[in-house]
Amino acid sequence: MRASAAFNRLLVLVMLVASFVAPGAAHAEGTVRIVDQYGIGSLLLKVAKDQKLIEKEGARAGLHIDVQWTTLSGGAAVNEALLSGAADIATLGIGPLMTIWDRTRGHQDFRAMSAQSAVPVYLVSNDARIRSIADIGEKDRIAVVSVAVSQQGRLLQMASAKAFGDAEYARLDRFEVNMPHADATTAMLAGSSVINLHFSNAPYQYQELDDPKIYKVISSTDILGGPATSSVAVTSDKWRKDNPRTYAAVRAALVDAARLVRSNKPEAAAIYIRQDASKLSPTFVERILNDKDVSFSTTPENTLALGAFLFKVGVIRHEPKSWRDYFFTDDPDAQGS
C-alpha cells in the first residue's frame, strides 16, 4: 500500500519536472496531458484514448493534437497532479471534484468539463457480522483508494452523518486504509485479515459480489437517494481559456465516446480490457455495461447532494448552489443536476 502511494507521488513528480523542461509545450494549443484512473467509471476517456477520438476531433477542426496519457490510482494523487500543473485534464469522482473546486476558486478555478459515468459504488464486506455501517467497529478495516478524501471516503462520511448525526460524519474515517481497488479485491476474495470491508467500484465490486461470502452493505445509490454521476473529467479555467480549440476537441471526443459505449457494448468492453490491461472476460465486462443501474453520459446527474453535504459539515468552504457552479457550461441551455 505504501509502495503504491509512493509510486504515485514519484510519477506526479516526474510529470511535473517534464512540464518544466518543456514549458512552451505545457500550455501550447494542440497539446494536452490527461491523467486517468483505473476502473470502468472513466470508460469515456479510455474509449477516447483507444480510438484516438481527441486527435480525430482536432483534425476535423484543422488542429494537430498531441495527447499525453498517464494513469494513477486514487483521487489524492490525481488532485496533486492537477494542482501541481503536471496534468491538464484528469478523471475525478464528485467528492474530489468538490474539494478541488472549493480550494481553487478565484485562482486556478478547477471545474468539471464533462460527466463521464453514473456507475454506483458499493461498500462490500466478507464479515457476516456487518449488516450496516452501524456494525463497523474498532476491529474492522475498510479499504479505500484515499482515506477520507476519495469519492468513496466522502460517500461514507455522508452515510455516517445520516446514521449518527452531522457531528459524527467522520466517525468511520479512522477505520479506513489506503489500498488500490485491485489489491483490495484480491484481499477480500482471499479472506485476508488485513481488511474485511472494501468501498469498491466497477469492475471490482462485481468480482467481489460473485463470491457468495461477500455481500453489499450500502451503495452510493442508497446514500444519494438515487442514481448519480460518479466520474467526471476536470480541468482549470486557465487551461480552458488558453486552449479553446483543444478543449473543444476533448469535449467533443467525450461525446463521441459516450455514443460508442451506448451503441456498441461489445466494443466498449474490449476497449476497457485493453486500456486497463484487465484479465476479465469480455462477457463479464459486458454484463457490467448492460447493468440497468449503470450509464455513460456527459450530462451530470444528481451531483449537488454530495456538495451540499460537504459544505454543511465544513469540509468545503463554499456552498455550491447549482451543478453549474462546479461545471464549465458553454451552453446556457445545458441540462444537468
Rank of each mutant, 00 (worst) to 15 (best):
residue 55 E to K: 00
residue 56 K to W: 05
residue 56 K to P: 09
residue 56 K to I: 08
residue 56 K to R: 15
residue 57 E to V: 06
residue 58 G to K: 04
residue 61 A to G: 11
residue 61 A to E: 15
residue 63 L to I: 11
residue 63 L to Q: 09
residue 65 I to Q: 05
residue 65 I to T: 07
residue 65 I to P: 06
residue 66 D to A: 14
residue 69 W to Y: 15
residue 70 T to E: 15
residue 70 T to D: 14
residue 72 L to H: 01
residue 73 S to E: 13
residue 73 S to T: 14
residue 74 G to I: 06
residue 75 G to M: 00
residue 76 A to W: 06
residue 76 A to R: 12
residue 76 A to E: 15
residue 76 A to N: 11
residue 78 V to F: 04
residue 78 V to S: 01
residue 80 E to T: 15
residue 81 A to G: 09
residue 82 L to A: 03
residue 85 G to H: 06
residue 85 G to I: 08
residue 86 A to T: 03
residue 87 A to K: 00
residue 88 D to F: 02
residue 88 D to H: 14
residue 88 D to E: 13
residue 89 I to M: 09
residue 89 I to F: 05
residue 90 A to K: 02
residue 91 T to P: 02
residue 93 G to Q: 10
residue 93 G to H: 10
residue 93 G to Y: 10
residue 95 G to D: 08
residue 95 G to A: 14
residue 96 P to H: 07
residue 97 L to G: 05
residue 98 M to V: 11
residue 99 T to W: 09
residue 101 W to L: 05
residue 103 R to V: 10
residue 105 R to A: 12
residue 106 G to N: 11
residue 109 D to C: 07
residue 109 D to I: 01
residue 110 F to T: 00
residue 110 F to S: 03
residue 112 A to I: 05
residue 113 M to V: 08
residue 113 M to R: 00
residue 114 S to W: 07
residue 114 S to V: 08
residue 115 A to R: 02
residue 117 S to K: 01
residue 118 A to I: 09
residue 121 V to T: 15
residue 122 Y to R: 14
residue 123 L to Q: 04
residue 123 L to C: 07
residue 123 L to P: 03
residue 124 V to L: 12
residue 124 V to E: 07
residue 126 N to C: 12
